[in-house]
């Protein structure tokens, strides 16, 4: 029994996929708590689509696609924050304007190519089994950087997420925390891009945290529970996809969704 369960990890591509799944699951779902509590669900989708322009540019310039995706996603995140603050438009409008612009730029650049060999499908839907050693280095380094930054800013980010006006009056750098969060989310999305793809990455930012939100009365337990749900989703999804022969990204998201509905049911069953 045990042997059969461990069998998939005899393959090195499965070992790399497992490491990627653990990091992506934990990071996305922890950053996802801020996404859910600040009602930013739209941003995950937005930044993921925007990163597509970076992938196309990187492809045309023959540079690393993750680097291209990261640069464009971070610039889009900063642009979203800037337009929101300076243009006095709501954050979701700002996201709506800028991410579609970046996505359109990606399609524009790609459509001018007479022939392209870019494997669009793997970017749109993700393929965790194709994570190379180089990809894994990027995932570990960028993932660790975002995690450390989030830990250092933990208390300030919590205060600013709950009550930005009072936090600002108390002298917290609320504006920079907002920009910092957008950049951290952009990098988180790029880290997760290969595992779950552009179309589905938003689910990993929202669903595990939304499930944890159902069952938590305090912030830190929500954060830890969300990380747990995230890891169960990515590792469970990877595992299930191996045996079912299904798309890893889609399977991961479906596991997360299943956990969400279990959490909703548990909340309803539990006496208040």
């Amino acid at each position: 029994m045990m042997h059969a369960l461990l069998a998939p990890f005899a393959y090195s591509f499965m070992q790399r996929a497992l490491v990627a799944a653990l990091i992506v699951g934990a990071l996305c779902s922890m950053m996802g708590t801020y996404v859910v509590l600040r009602k930013l669900a739209f941003i995950g989708d937005g930044l993921a689509h925007a990163s597509f322009a970076g992938i196309v540019i990187a492809y045309l310039r023959n540079i690393d696609y993750q680097l291209g995706a990261a640069v464009v996603a971070v610039l889009t995140a900063l642009g979203i924050g800037f337009v929101h603050r300076k243009g006095k438009v709501s954050l979701d409008t700002s996201i709506g304007v800028l991410f579609t612009a970046a996505f359109a730029l990606g399609i524009f650049l790609m459509s001018r190519q007479t022939r392209y060999t870019l494997d669009l499908q793997s970017f749109l839907f993700g393929d965790i089994l194709s994570v190379t050693r180089g990809d894994l280095v990027f995932i570990v380094v960028v993932g660790a950087a975002v995690f450390i930054a989030a830990m250092l800013a933990y208390r300030d980010m919590l205060f600013a997420s709950f009550d930005p006006v009072v936090a600002e009056a108390a002298g917290l750098p609320v504006k920079w925390l907002d920009y910092g969060l957008l950049v951290a989310l952009a990098l988180t999305i790029v880290v997760a891009l290969q595992s779950v793809g552009i179309v589905l990455v938003a689910a990993l930012l929202v669903t595990p945290a939304a499930a944890a939100y159902q069952l938590s009365k305090r912030f830190t337990p929500m954060l830890l529970l969300s990380a747990g749900f995230g890891i169960v989703s990515t590792v469970g999804g990877l595992y299930a996809s191996y045996f079912l022969g299904s798309s890893s990204g889609a399977t991961i998201v479906l596991v997360a969704t299943l956990l969400f509905f279990v959490a909703v049911a548990l909340k309803r069953l539990r006496p208040a």
Binding site: F159, V166, A169, A170, G171
Partner: peptide
């Protein structure tokens, strides 16, 4: 932490996962 401001109507999300002591603890964060 120099200035503490208590707004008229707290425009916070009351469903935020925080207890009373969690909210009061934020006063120390500054």
């Amino acid at each position: 932490g120099t200035i503490a401001y208590v707004p008229q109507v707290e425009a916070v999300d009351w469903a935020f996962p925080a207890t009373v002591s969690d909210v009061v603890a934020m006063g120390r964060f500054a």
